[in-house]
Write a protein that binds this DNA or RNA. Structure first.
Lengths: 259, 259
DNA sequence: CAGTGGTCTAGACCACAAC
DNA sequence: TTGTGGTCTAGACCACTGG
């Protein structure tokens, strides 16, 4: 919780920065406003995950219209400096987490190893009738079923990742009765003796659709990273099929591979 | 070059689609306009890399203000459906190219293998004094120099990638005198007997800075993918250090890795 | 319930691209 | 030179968040 004093301090610094750039540059309003806001944000006055002043307050102190304020904020959002929670405001981004898609070592481990606090929340889990393509890929016999698990994952209590996991239900009996708010790859490897030995993945940036955006408290149409991942066991059978949606400012993808 | 007839056909279809969604849904203006534009774009009336009607024309035919038109276009841009050339207009995106960062097999090969036409253009090449960090990484002795090569790469004559390559100048004598509008990894492997056997990379989405945006004919602040890549030879020495900026709608990143 | 972000309008001017 | 996209303003209303 920010005190009123800190708020006033922040606003004063913004006003000062705006004035400085107005005096020393010939840049257009948007560029000056962005420089001022950016300077104050990197000065450390705003804590990570802390909310910025309201758009209307920024409009006043930066001396530009609200539309321009929103363009400035969108620009900083694209850079990853700030992020937005839908109808809640704009917040200062924490540092990115390095995420190695290839390693079966999962989210919980990565995040903890980098000194941050991971959390996984199961949104829903159910037995579903897979589409023919999915059934074929997961090695599900005709008429067989799949488990679908949707989870939301947090870093320092900030939601950053939505994933849907599909597995062959026959191969992992009782899976849905387990605690899934943890590492699934560990469960499959330890409890079912099915370790993942190979991963194929594809990723590209795209807009988050409405349902995913909602689950991340983001604005529909915000940029996001979409990841499709297929995990194989030692025999080359598909263990797990994942569809993931990442918050674009939360991660840095890491790769380390022999040729 | 599009004929006037095709233009009129396109506008007629847009008007029809806009009317359809206005009649059949209760959605707000932006959603209806996006649905209409999206429907027409996926109908195939517009060719890949072809320019959409001007924002003011869309404003008229979609029945919303220009600001809303631009929000719709920005939304479709975030999805990767269309892309923008700065001050030139909005264009229909071609399909993404699968790009495997890990494989030393380069851009020219990947693109050609997928039935598209790659091109590489060297923007500049020079001998530079490397920073201490870069020198250390590239194994450059005290006072030694590095080669910097900046290239722009095209798919079907659309610029999609800007890269800066840094190598140890002492290790690759005469490199800058060669034709660099081709595969650099092949040159290093074949002509200098230094094949890359390991690649470490990191990637994250961020806004393109002004210089890179300009080289891609994009609007400064547009989203892009930043990639830092380090290539090693069999002895574990760094061969090549790359900084790359990708067009976010042009690629799909592919990963295939043993655990 | 007050204030916020999200949306939308109707203008305007400029620098630049393309013809 | 014409028209374009890029920028900017000054409003307005709505749905929702949070106290």
């Amino acid at each position: 919780m920010r005190t009123k004093d800190l708020d006033q301090d922040l606003m004063a610094r913004l006003a000062q920065a705006a004035e400085h750039f107005a005096d020393t540059t010939q840049d257009p309003p948007q560029v000056r406003a962005r420089a001022a806001l950016s300077a104050v944000l990197s000065s450390g006055v705003v804590a990570q995950q802390e909310r910025l002043p309201s758009e209307r307050d920024l409009q006043g102190v930066l001396g530009v219209s609200r539309g321009t304020v929103r363009e400035v904020l969108a620009h900083l959002e694209a850079e990853g400096v700030i992020y937005r929670l839908d109808r809640r405001g704009w917040f200062l981004s924490p540092p990115r987490i390095d995420y190695d898609l290839a390693k079966p070592k999962g989210f919980m481990t990565f995040v903890a190893d980098q000194g941050r606090v991971p959390r996984t929340e199961t949104l829903d889990k159910m037995l579903i009738q897979p589409s023919p393509e999915i059934a074929d890929m997961l090695g599900i016999a005709a008429g067989g079923m799949a488990y679908s698990i949707r989870r939301r994952r947090y870093i320092d209590e900030r939601p950053v990742l939505i994933e849907q996991i599909l597995v062959n239900a026959a191969r992992f009996p009782g899976l849905l009765e387990r605690d899934l708010d943890t590492s699934l790859s560990t469960i499959l490897a330890k409890d079912y003796q099915v370790p993942t030995t190979r991963t194929k993945a594809e990723m590209y940036p795209t807009a988050l659709d409405e349902s995913v955006a909602q689950m991340l408290y983001m604005t529909p149409g915000s940029p996001g990273l979409f990841v499709r991942r297929v995990c194989y066991d030692a025999k080359g059978q598909v263990v797990e099929y994942d569809l993931e949606h990442w918050h674009p400012s939360a991660f840095r993808l890491i790769l380390d591979s022999d040729a």
